[in-house]
C-alpha cells in the first residue's frame, strides 16, 4: 500500500502535461470542493501546467458548505489560480419545484450532475480539458455519481487508493486543515464517506488491495483476519457497481460494431 510519493508526483504531472498536449489543450479545468482529492489534483495540475493554465470552479449548493468554499478559495489563492464560485442552487432548486423529493441521494446525484454540466460548459468556454478527481477506492466501490463526478476527460488519481492519495498529499505539503478533514461526498450536511460506507478508508483500502491488487480470493482474504462481513460488503459494492466502469453495451447486429470489434486506441495518432 505504501507508495513512492515523489515518483507518483513525477508520473502524474507528466501524464497531465502529456495528455493535454496530445489533444492540443494548454489549460486544465477542475471542480474544487475543498476536500482532499480535488486539492491533490489541483496541486498536481499546477505543477504540470503552471498556475496560468489551471482554471478552478467552486460550485456550492446554497450556503450549506461555506467552510468548504472558504477552504477551496484559500487553496486557489495559495496557488495563485483564477477561480470562480458558481452557486448551483438555482438550477437544482428549479428542477425540484416541479419534482419535489426528500430523497437525499437523488438530490446529491442531481448536484453532482449539475456540477458536471457547469464544468463541461466552462471547459468549452475556456478551452480547458476537464481533470477528474475520482480515486481508485471510489471507482471500485462505485461510490460516485455516474455522469456526475465521474465525468471527465482524464482521471489522474484513478489508480491511487484514498489512503495513498493521503500519502501523496503529505508529500505535496497541502494544508494540514485539508488533510485533517473527514472525507465527504457532500451529498448532505453532516454526511461522511466513512459513516455512510460503515467502514474506515484504512480498512476498505486494505481489503481492496488484497482483493484487487494481490488478486486474492474472498476466502483467502477472510482467512488473513479481515472480518467476513466487511469483505463481503466490499465485494458486493464492487460487483454492484460494474456498470459505472463501462460504456453502455451495444447489441451486436452488423459485421463490425463500436465497442466490440471496432477497436482503436484513445491516443490514436497522438
Amino acid at each position: 500500500m505504501k507508495i513512492n510519493p515523489a515518483f507518483a508526483e513525477k508520473l502524474l504531472t507528466r501524464f497531465i502535461k502529456e495528455e493535454l498536449s496530445k489533444f492540443d489543450f494548454k489549460k486544465g479545468i477542475l471542480g474544487l470542493s475543498g476536500g482532499l482529492d480535488s486539492t491533490v489534483c489541483v496541486y498536481l495540475a499546477v505543477k504540470a501546467l503552471g498556475p496560468k493554465n489551471v482554471v478552478v470552479l467552486i460550485m456550492p449548493y446554497k450556503d450549506t458548505y461555506s467552510k468548504d468554499v472558504q477552504d477551496a478559495t484559500d487553496i486557489a489563492n495559495r496557488l495563485k489560480l483564477k477561480s470562480r464560485v458558481i452557486d448551483i442552487s438555482p438550477m437544482v432548486d428549479a428542477f425540484y419545484i416541479n419534482h419535489p423529493t426528500d430523497n437525499r441521494i437523488l438530490k446529491g446525484n442531481k448536484m453532482a450532475r449539475e456540477r458536471m454540466s457547469v464544468l463541461y460548459d466552462f471547459s468549452k468556454r475556456e478551452k480547458a480539458l476537464i481533470l477528474g478527481t475520482s480515486n481508485k477506492t471510489e471507482l471500485l466501490l462505485g461510490y460516485s455519481t455516474i455522469h456526475g463526478d465521474m465525468a471527465c476527460a482524464i482521471n489522474p488519481l484513478g489508480d491511487l487508493y484514498k489512503t495513498q492519495i493521503r500519502q501523496l498529499a503529505r508529500h505535496l505539503k497541502i494544508p494540514e486543515k485539508i488533510l485533517k478533514k473527514k472525507p465527504t461526498a457532500g451529498l448532505w450536511v453532516g454526511q461522511t464517506d466513512e459513516g455512510e460506507l460503515g467502514l474506515s478508508y484504512a480498512k476498505i483500502d486494505k481489503i481492496l488491495y488484497q482483493l484487487v491488487d494481490l488478486r486474492k480470493s474472498k476466502k483467502e482474504v477472510i482467512s488473513e483476519g479481515f472480518p467476513k462481513q466487511d469483505v463481503e460488503k466490499i465485494i458486493g459494492l464492487i460487483r454492484g457497481s460494474e456498470f459505472k466502469r463501462h460504456l453502455p453495451p451495444i447489441p451486436k447486429i452488423s459485421a463490425r460494431t463500436v465497442g466490440h470489434d471496432f477497436l482503436y486506441p484513445y491516443d490514436q495518432e497522438k
Binding site: L11, R14, F15, E18, E19, P265, Y266, D267
Partner: peptide, 8 residues
C-alpha cells in the same frame, strides 16, 4: 517511455 491510453 511515454503514455498510451494511460499505460506508462
Amino acid at each position: 517511455v511515454g503514455f498510451e491510453d494511460g499505460k506508462s
